[in-house]
Nucleic acid binder design. Structure first.
Lengths: 196, 196
DNA sequence: GCCGGACTTCGATGTTCATCTAATTAGATG
DNA sequence: CATCTAATTAGATGAACATCGAAGTCCGGC
């Protein structure tokens, strides 16, 4: 399970309050009634009720009724399970992957909107990552499984951007395009076509 | 170190926001500029700046300037150190102890204010824990290191509360008071005087 | 030395949320 | 049944805060 962002936020949010944390701390020692908690943390009973309902919604506490008194206790296993799940190993990096996968396209789109007009690149950005977006776009204009002579390469790139020499060099540097042994013809690198 | 409550709250609070969590997730993968982050999480750069400054204040991210671009990256060690500290063993129960030690007196005071008038117990509460506060008070009226006959016990308790029989029985049940072998004389339990 | 881009700071706005009082429900007691 | 106590719910208030646009700062290029 990749730890849903919403789950993580909910978990952190419920613990991101001093009063609630102190209640949790007290319940970690032994079970307590609402009234006791209210006195111990120095807030009014309704406030304690409010906090307990939030904790209960996450399953962090449970209740036992005895007469009109309600004894709350901490579900320690639940707390530890959630905590471990949240902070375990690459819990955070997995969020990164999730977000990235969902938003990388949007990022590319924005870069292209900024540095292109129609099908032409108006200007090459200085930042490497942005430049790569455009280089990828150019690479996509070539067909896989065929070779191009240098004039043919120029014929593809020049309509997109005046500085076709720089772009061709970038394509090779990045590895999306390769030259044959003679250094006379170009073609898309078959091993990296999948990235495009 | 017992994990200050304020520290815990600060830690949870900074992670208790979806946008901030996604930023952290992205930075966990690799370093990013403000602009990239803004595009990826779909908020404006000022908002990203705002979040990054909060993360920086906790030392969770660091910056590297390159021209006018600022590359942020996650301080993974710091995150893990904090996380470990937060979840270390009985992290939560230690909060309990802290709060309890600081507030137990206040609790006893409130119970006594509710169920006593001056030096007299007006009514015995039904809740065990509250009852114990008053029984402790009664126990404190006896001197350690001496014995009391039953009439003498009555002489101590009766001015405090009419139902001296119930209170005497509670004192014995709880273990703060013991009877000698003959069952004729009472005295404070020397092994538990420290609790009073 | 001015322009453009990346970033931060400022000020305003709207939402979320902890807290309170007052009113309500539900149990126990006489 | 009337009453008292414990707890929850409802409603109101105020503070914290995420977000934005606008203005300010800082850097590199022409």
């Amino acid at each position: 399970m990749p730890a849903e962002i919403a789950t993580l936020v909910a978990f952190f949010k419920v613990l991101a309050d001093a009063t609630r944390l102190r209640i949790v701390g007290l319940l970690a020692v032994e079970e307590r009634s609402v009234d006791e908690l209210a006195t111990l943390v120095e807030v009014r009973p309704p406030t304690v009720s409010h906090h307990l309902s939030k904790l209960k919604k996450l399953g962090l506490v449970s209740v036992r009724s005895e007469g009109s008194t309600r004894w709350y206790r901490l579900e320690i296993e639940a707390v530890e399970r959630l905590a471990r799940e949240v902070l375990a190993g690459e819990g955070l990096t997995s969020i990164g992957d999730e977000v990235e996968a969902a938003a990388e396209d949007a990022y590319a789109l924005k870069v292209m909107q900024t540095f292109m007009e129609g099908d032409r690149i108006t200007q090459l950005p200085r930042q490497w990552r942005k430049k790569m977006v455009l280089v990828r776009y150019v690479a996509q204009q070539f067909e896989p499984d065929r070779t191009y002579t240098e004039p043919e390469v120029k014929a593809v790139i020049a309509p997109i951007h005046a500085d076709h020499v720089t772009l061709r060099r970038l394509l090779v540097d990045v590895g999306w395009m390769v030259r044959d042994k003679a250094g006379r013809e170009y073609r898309l690198n078959p091993e990296r076509v999948a990235e495009l």
